[in-house]
Design a protein around this nucleic acid. Structure first.
Lengths: 207, 207
DNA sequence: CGTTATTTAAAACGCTTGTTTAAACTGTCA
DNA sequence: TGACAGTTTAAACAAGCGTTTTAAATAACG
């Protein structure tokens, strides 16, 4: 495996675990078993490395998600919100075959990027991958046309909050659930649990 | 105002803005206009300062929230989930009279604590203020008895995710909403928008 | 008033951070 | 073989970090 990929892999799992700010280049290069200077040689800076880690996932996820949402948008019958959100399941879970622990790593990274580094990742996503968001909004609008643009805006951000926050602490939550309820849960179970929640939340009646 | 309080105030707003890891003691003492060494003199360490900032809020919020939830738990008629979550509104908003921007600062700090520093704040809250969680769970159980303990566990964490995540980026979100929809929103509006979402999410039917 | 305790001040501590430098090594092609 | 680009290496860099130390200033009290 190339030095570049060794760095990407190590950075990914450390970033997911401890955040971008909380991970040093020395930890990354030590886990990757490469020289410290290799990061700056191959990526230029830590910030560029973060972008590279995120891009690797987004480039894999984005087309799958686009296709999945397109089906919803183009089907004749009006979709339910549950169907809209379920469109995320397969593309997200397919990240697990893309890379080990891919689904949970990616969602954790997403969460880190939103809270670390003061919204630089929000800028990155909305400028680099705007079509994903557009298609998603369209799908929700088809499912719940009465919802105003403002309400869609807010409820989609609530949804992102739910998902991202849950995933960024999903390891801890799964441990607690295992101890307290003696039930084994994996990331797919968590996704299946969260979908009814957000679908119902977005579909809440307007008073 | 005492040195101690000047430090607490400065630390609070910086922590809320940039996270615990992202804020240095030098930034804090410089904003507070006190000497760098004062933090270690008055609080012992940065970690203890973080605890002190959080405790100041929790000691204010906790009794109000307890009282508000108690009303729900003890009323004769079965509460709706919307009522249960609405019990948070007044205690949370009253933090705004406790301190300027108190509500949003506190919720942002909560969010920081969950994602920064690998769950040390979760430990802090669950061990120092367990009654709040207990009462909340009881209230939800009264409102939706069919929900199993596992499902309550998961959906309450989804709820925390929604609220905390939303609030930790609420400043940015309010700005976007202002630009895109020309509507003025404050923290109270956001809370009023999020309540139907989480109430509906927690109340989602079990399939 | 004098003494003791508390609080501030400035400087330095040792350590970690991201980044850069310059030399050594590796493989490829003429 | 010898030159050359691409990589890797170890060492150093300046800057920032949390914390500690020293001494001076202030407050409290017998």
């Amino acid at each position: 495996m190339s030095t570049k990929n060794k760095i990407l892999d190590a950075a990914e799992s450390l970033f997911a675990d401890k955040g971008f700010n909380g991970t040093s280049l020395r930890e990354i290069t030590s886990l990757a078993e490469v020289n410290l200077a290799a990061v700056n040689y191959h990526f230029g800076s830590k910030k560029e490395l973060i972008k590279a880690v995120m891009s690797r996932y987004m480039n894999e996820l984005s087309p799958n998600l686009q296709a999945s949402l397109l089906v919803i948008c183009q089907q004749e019958t009006k979709p339910t919100l549950h169907e809209v959100f379920s469109a995320f399941i397969e593309p997200l879970l397919s990240l697990n075959v893309f890379r080990e622990n891919g689904t949970s790593n990616f969602l954790q990274l997403l969460g880190r990027g939103y809270t670390d580094s003061q919204g630089f990742l929000r800028w990155f996503l909305t400028t680099q991958y705007p079509e994903v968001i557009t298609n998603f909004v369209t799908a929700v609008q088809r499912a719940y046309p009465e919802l105003s643009a403002e309400d869609i805006f807010w409820r989609l951000h609530f949804t992102m909050g739910t998902v991202i926050f849950t995933m960024s602490s999903s390891d801890a939550l799964m441990d607690i659930a295992k101890n307290d309820f003696e039930q084994d849960v994996d990331i797919a179970d968590v996704i299946r649990k969260v979908i009814p929640f957000v679908a119902s939340g977005v579909g809440a009646p307007l008073d």
